[in-house]
Design a protein around this nucleic acid. Sequence first.
DNA 1: AAACTTCTTGTCATCGATAACATTCTGCTC
DNA 2: GAGCAGAATGTTATCGATGACAAGAAGTTT
Lengths: 323, 323
Amino acid sequence: MHDVARLAGVSAQTVSRLIKGFEGIRPGTRERVEAAIAELDYRPNQAARLLRTRKSKRIGALAHEMFEFGPARLLRGAANEARRSGYSVNIVGVDGDDELAIEEAFRSFEEEQVAGIIAVTLTDSMRRVVERRPLDVPIIVDPAETLGGGQTISQTGAAMAADHLLQLGHRRIGYLGGPDGWLPSRERRSQFLADVRAGGGQIVAEWSGDWTPASGDRAGGVFDPSANITAVFVANDAMAIGFIHRLFARGFDVPGDVSVIGFDDIAEAAYMNPPLTTVRPDFEAEGRIAIGALLAEIEHHPRGDFAHPGGELIVRSSTASVR
Amino acid sequence: MHDVARLAGVSAQTVSRLIKGFEGIRPGTRERVEAAIAELDYRPNQAARLLRTRKSKRIGALAHEMFEFGPARLLRGAANEARRSGYSVNIVGVDGDDELAIEEAFRSFEEEQVAGIIAVTLTDSMRRVVERRPLDVPIIVDPAETLGGGQTISQTGAAMAADHLLQLGHRRIGYLGGPDGWLPSRERRSQFLADVRAGGGQIVAEWSGDWTPASGDRAGGVFDPSANITAVFVANDAMAIGFIHRLFARGFDVPGDVSVIGFDDIAEAAYMNPPLTTVRPDFEAEGRIAIGALLAEIEHHPRGDFAHPGGELIVRSSTASVR
DNA sequence: AAACTTCTTGTCATCGATAACATTCTGCTC
DNA sequence: GAGCAGAATGTTATCGATGACAAGAAGTTT
């Protein structure tokens, strides 16, 4: 910075002011300084700035299972949104229920003096670890909480699934969910169950898996035909794929004997046999919204409108009207 | 730090020395300082340290399509390995051929004064952008380059696929690859082609897609039965799924009419119909190895052994002996 | 016990930016 | 053109760690 100042014939302070966008600089001076900056390809030293101001433009993202379908997209949306506002996002992935890794992540966020933290906490246990941590920066523990009381994408999506099955005339319906300890899993379940009942249907069977196709396959193994289930909502496409696979192996037809609707719309869904009817939630939007809320808090400006991430029902061939 | 020093009755320098692991500190002093650190829950200020030393413990990872199957696992392996050595990894995702985003990523790495950079450059165009950038920190442009002349996972995997098909008696073989501009795509192709030929087979047809199931489906549409192809190696499972889907739609049987082997072993592969024979490459190991090489360069200690990431052939039911 | 080596600890300046305060310069009024 | 408000710029001290050097303490040798 001093080199720039010397070259432009001004003091370092003037350079500093220009950099952070101070208005009151005479045009002539401004030009000289800008020329000097360009000339020397000067780049401010973040460390020095951080040391002095204690304000960074970095956000820490604690991401549970960051490479899973939903979280990955949410993170992408979040990172892009943050970047648009001049913040960078430091993603720390945590797999499984590794409390130590979480503690470590927070420690590193603290040391890096992030301006805020977004924790993509999918499970209760993880959420507990995060919540009992005293912190001096804004934090968003669950992106869904930033929706201002609106519906989460899990809820909107589950509602779409329920509506779709009811419209097709299904009344005896099953639900294959994720693990109980997972928030999205519970949200999808309660919304779906409520809507099915409100629409005059009943939940005849429930199973739960661990989001993997293998667990969907296992659920398909305990599927009981004598219960006369005509449709099943599976909480993600991966399990739906395993579920359908086992149903076929056991001689059932989808959607002939039972309709199946998934959740996520993974790229492969359209190329299953039968092509999978599913819900395509806008995870990226949820990430964007969460970061928007976090930045509002960091910069103390009021939240704008509460946007709501949407979702889309993708009707393919794994669901059909009830006979 | 000064508070700690005062509390322990020593100078700040002594505290500093203790922190960075300096040996020559009398046990009594050491104890007092450690007690003071614990007492005050003291955490060194990274910014100050970075300002003074210009050495950070952070690695920048420029990740192209970071949420794709391979890159995601590679990054996970890299991040874990880095963490084991006390480094944190700052992942910046770049999607598509966004040169601007790459430039921006490097800029931010520079500003953060990362100790090294690992660029997961999958495409040639991206690689060119990265390579023409002058840099003053160690960088690994392509993880595969750290293998010390050994085979990449793409090559080992392709070799396994070729071997498998040849062993089953196939001689008239097709190849469905990724985009030409992608390095892994070319590696898989050239290795596969070479091995097939060396084994007495011939490549009767070639198609290429963009890694998506949709593109696999399109390739399946132009599959020409008159060429008497009995087996096809598809460069990733997603395309394989689309490919098989279309073959079925056109009335061909897999593996009855044509065997198909994929690459990646995505979770869904086992639950396809038929369950997909595929190659399971160890992407995480590749990430670990790359970081190992990078750290060696950063810390100027000699590279250890060149480990080689392995792969595994997963034989399921989409391949069969030639009739 | 003096002289000397080695080990431990302390002092001071510095990294690059900025907050707070001080000063100089402009443009205006009368 | 003197006086003055307000704008533009400069000075100084500081954030928290550490490198280089200095000094004091402990141990060794003769």
